[in-house]
Design a protein around this nucleic acid. Structure first.
Length: 333
DNA sequence: AAATTCCGCAACCGCAAAATT
DNA sequence: CAATTTTGCGGTTGCGGAATT
């Protein structure tokens, strides 16, 4: 029984061998993936395109971060999940170098259990009523209650504002005032760099699928500010995902550098540099439009309070973690 | 030491949206 | 504009190693 997408060919399934990986990497570094459905044939693989795509995205891409999740990453996942639910791809966009699959697995294997052990419903993030709790969770949940540390985070508190209050006092959108959409993806310490981080991936430049941070809309540009909120810890560590050069390349050890793979990428990347810059300029305009031109008062109704908006405001909430008083957490309400 | 259970993770499946023809 | 193809996503499965019996 083969895949529906490639039922004509005999297709290998299951784990990938190092040889297959090598073939795929060689092919994509040389030619890009173009159309995934043509990749297996061109790369000499007996896999379906879908499988190749998955393997590349989840494992072979050079910009992937490896290793266990940091506490900051875990907190980001919890916070974003609280608002977005199981939208793993969206959540993963807030974690440079992590894939949706990775985030999903981490959630299912670790975070979910942790929340349950704390007496929290992993779906709603609310405290599970004691009568609904299983006995083995009871103790843990009660410990939380006794510890005067409410299990609700900043974001929960803010989201508990009523719709009415939102309409009366819409939160102020605090997108970073970056000179361009490129620099938004850099932590503040990098913002003086004149070298842009390329932001496009599969959607616009299939020939450079190894660039960091693929964005589907301009409001996703809140990604790196998360980084900035803890850059003195995570970012300065060896697992840094920020390339001082501005180019979105990581070696197999998650260091920015020039390994073989990265060098192979160099040529095709430079070829599309100009087109990329034009695209980035266009994206800048979109961000500007979102920031300034949009009339919040006129458009702020139930339907306009979309996920993008939630995500963009999430930024400020996450950063608020470092603030000292609850007054500072109020999103300018 | 062998058998069994548990668990994390890579990969698959099916569906929907987007893009292309 | 409809049909087809491609891409992206979230849920789920099952393999393989670790832990337990």
């Amino acid at each position: 029984m083969g895949h529906r997408c490639c039922s004509k060919q005999k297709v290998k399934r299951g784990l990938w061998s190092p040889e297959e990986d090598e073939k795929l990497v060689n092919h994509i570094t040389t030619y890009g993936h173009g159309s995934w459905s043509s990749v297996p044939k061109l790369a000499g693989l007996q896999r379906c395109g879908k499988s190749c795509r998955l393997r590349w995205i989840n494992y072979l891409r050079p910009d992937l971060k490896r290793g266990s999740f940091s506490e900051q990453e875990e907190q980001i996942i919890i916070d974003v999940h609280r608002i977005l639910g199981n939208r793993w791809a969206q959540i993963a966009k807030h974690l440079p170098g992590r894939t949706d699959n990775e985030v999903k697995n981490f959630w299912n294997s670790c975070i979910k259990k942790k929340l349950i052990s704390q007496g929290l419903d992993p779906k709603t993030h609310n405290l599970i009523p004691s009568h609904q709790r299983a006995n083995n969770n009871k103790v843990a949940a009660e410990n939380i209650l006794q510890s005067h540390q409410p299990p609700f985070s900043i974001i929960t508190l803010n989201l508990q504002m009523t719709d009415a209050s939102m309409e009366m006092n819409p939160p102020i959108l605090t997108l970073p005032a970056a000179p361009s959409s490129n620099s938004i993806h850099q932590p503040p310490s990098m913002q003086t760099s004149s070298v842009p981080i390329f932001t496009s991936g599969d959607h616009h430049n299939p020939n450079i699928p190894w660039t960091v941070n693929d964005h589907q809309n301009s409001l996703d540009s809140t990604i790196f500010p998360y980084v900035s909120s803890f850059q003195n810890t995570a970012i300065s560590s060896s697992s840094s995902s920020v390339n001082p050069s501005g180019f979105g390349l990581l070696d197999e050890n998650c260091f920015w550098g020039h390994n073989t793979i990265a060098e192979n990428f160099e040529a095709p990347r430079m070829e599309v540099l100009q087109a990329q810059e034009q695209e980035n300029n266009q994206a800048t305009e979109e961000v500007d439009a979102a920031k300034g031109v949009q009339d919040m008062d006129a458009s702020f109704d139930g339907s306009s309070f979309g996920l993008e908006f939630v995500e963009s405001t999430l930024l400020s909430s996450s950063m608020c973690r470092e603030l000292d008083s609850m007054d500072d957490l109020a999103w300018n309400f």
